[in-house]
C-alpha cells in the first residue's frame, strides 16, 4: 500500500459521493448517464465476487462493499426515486451498452491471466471499467453545458485513474515481481479517455467559467 494507491481509492470514493450528494441535494440527475452508472455497478459486481473468500485486508473489503452500495444507491435514485427519475435525460442517454459489454466479454475470454470463471469475470471487469465512462462522456458532449458537480464528478474519476498509474509506477519500481500488464494497458486506455475532458475542465476552471464542451 502506498500513498498513490490510497489517494486513488479515496478520490474514487469522493467522485461517487459527489454524485450522490448532487442527486440527493438537488433532487436532480440531469446530465448523469444511467448507462455509465449501470456499467460501473456491473464492473464492481463482477470484480468483487472475491469479497466472499479473499480477505486480503479490511481496507479492501470495506471499499468493495462501499463501492457496490453507493453505486447501487445512485442507480436506485435514477430509476426509482419519484422526483429524481423525472429529471433523467433519457432522450440523450442513448448509448448502446451492448457495444461495450460484448467486446469486453469476448476479449476477457481470449486475453486473460488464467482460464477460470472468476478470473475471466475479473478480467471482464477490468476491460469494462476502461470504457464504462463513454456513455457519460457522450451525454456531456450532447448536452454541452455541464453543471459544476457533474464536471467535478468526471474530473475526480479521471484523477483517480491518474493516481492508479502513479501507484503502478511506484510498485513496479519497489516490488521485485510486480507486473500486471492487462491492468496497466486497460488503465492507460481508461485514463486516456479523460484527457480531452480534462483539457476543457481545466480551461473552464482557469477562467472560472462554467464548463462548456465544444461541438
Amino acid at each position: 500500500m502506498n500513498i498513490f494507491r490510497v489517494s486513488a481509492d479515496i478520490l474514487h470514493l469522493l467522485s461517487i459521493l459527489v454524485l450522490l450528494l448532487k442527486i440527493h441535494a438537488t433532487k436532480s440527475c440531469a446530465g448523469i448517464s444511467l448507462k455509465t452508472q449501470e456499467l460501473y455497478l456491473a464492473v464492481f459486481v463482477t470484480r468483487y465476487l472475491d469479497l466472499f473468500w479473499n480477505f486480503h485486508s479490511l481496507y479492501n473489503s470495506v471499499f468493495k462493499v462501499v463501492y457496490i452500495a453507493t453505486s447501487s444507491m445512485i442507480i436506485w435514485y435514477m430509476k426509482r426515486h419519484r422526483g429524481v427519475k423525472q429529471t433523467y435525460d433519457k432522450d440523450h442517454d442513448t448509448f448502446r451498452y451492448l457495444f461495450l459489454i460484448v467486446p469486453c466479454a469476448v476479449l476477457a475470454l481470449i486475453v486473460n491471466g488464467r482460464f477460470s470463471l472468476f478470473e475471466i469475470l475479473w478480467t471482464f471487469s477490468i476491460y469494462l471499467e476502461a470504457v464504462a465512462i463513454l456513455p457519460q462522456l457522450v451525454l456531456l458532449q450532447r448536452t454541452k453545458n455541464v453543471d459544476n458537480l457533474t464536471g467535478n464528478y468526471v474530473f475526480l474519476l479521471g484523477l483517480y485513474r491518474a493516481f492508479y498509474i502513479l501507484n503502478w509506477i511506484y510498485r513496479y519500481a519497489t516490488e521485485p515481481h510486480y507486473s500486471a500488464w492487462i491492468v496497466w494497458l486497460s488503465g492507460l486506455v481508461q485514463t486516456g479517455l479523460y484527457l480531452d475532458f480534462f483539457y476543457y475542465y481545466l480551461q473552464a476552471w482557469k477562467q472560472s467559467k462554467k464548463l462548456q464542451l465544444p461541438s
Partner: peptide, 10 residues
C-alpha cells in the same frame, strides 16, 4: 502466472 494469485488492488 502462479495459480491462485490474488488481486490486491480495487
Amino acid at each position: 502466472e502462479e495459480d491462485g494469485e490474488e488481486h490486491d488492488e480495487l
